[in-house]
């Protein structure tokens, strides 16, 4: 049960895709989490529901939405293609898009809860001590919510790593280019390569367990 360089490629690609997707999820999830936690506007509850949709929608359905929005003829995709000549479909960047879409709600949910847990008086205190809103956010809200946000990011990383359906829809399953570990496991089993499947599954499981243990520790320490 050993892995050749070409067998390792899906694992490395998975780490790269999940890593970049987690960064995007952090930005999007933290921003939206702060917005919904700290401001009131009409349609906030509807927005909250929409942002949670990727958690419950079938991954292929989500993938289809992404194709509609980001495909060459889609709203954003058309704009990208027209102005920059870029298409995300069937590229590793497309896999990042898919992984971001499935994972950012996890950051969003925990970021929102974390920001709601920050004592509003501390933010008021920062204002009385001379801070602008941006400074209040950077110096008080964000550091106090960081543990929750980080825990969400760990879960998002695990989710991004494990995505199958959405990635398949958006980026396809091109060995060496867009074939992530989850897809490679499927291929290996289909082709009867049990050794490869075992190895991939083992590595993926180990990473996931490590992530979940870390997340558990983070949230536990917050409670005491």
């Amino acid at each position: 049960m050993s892995l050749s360089p070409s067998d390792l490629a899906p694992l490395l690609l998975t780490l790269r895709v999940a890593g970049v997707a987690t960064l995007f999820s952090l930005l999007i999830g933290t921003g939206l989490g702060f917005l919904t936690a700290r401001s009131r506007f009409p349609g906030r509850d509807v927005l909250d529901g929409i942002l949670a949709l990727p958690l419950v929608m079938p991954p292929t359905v989500l993938g289809y939405y992404l194709i509609v929005l980001w495909g060459r003829n889609g709203w954003f995709g058309g704009w990208l293609h027209e102005h920059f000549g870029i298409s995300l479909m069937f590229t590793w960047e497309g896999a990042v898009l898919a992984a971001t879409a499935v994972s950012f709600p996890l950051v969003y949910k925990s970021a929102r809860a974390a920001f709601e847990g920050v004592d509003g008086n501390l933010e008021k205190a920062a204002r009385t001590l001379g801070d602008r809103e941006i400074a209040v956010f950077i110096r008080v809200s964000l550091p106090l919510a960081s543990r929750g946000i980080f825990a969400g990011a760990m879960l998002a990383f695990a989710r991004a790593m494990g995505d199958f359906g959405t990635t398949l829809m958006v980026a396809g399953n091109i060995p060496g280019r867009t074939q992530t570990a989850a897809l490679a496991v499927f291929d290996a089993v289909q082709a009867g390569k049990d050794g490869l499947a075992n190895a991939l599954v083992l590595v993926m499981s180990a990473v996931c367990v490590a992530v979940l243990v870390t997340t558990g520790r983070l949230t536990e320490r917050r409670r005491t």
């Binding site: 004592d119 008086n121 501390l122 008021k124 204002r127 009385t128 602008r132 106090l144």
Partner: peptide, 20 residues
Amino acid sequence: LPVRKRGVGFLFQDYALFPH
């Protein structure tokens, strides 16, 4: 006037010290 330009100090009931 925004809070920071009012030149007033504020002592909160629970003191609102930054825990971090």
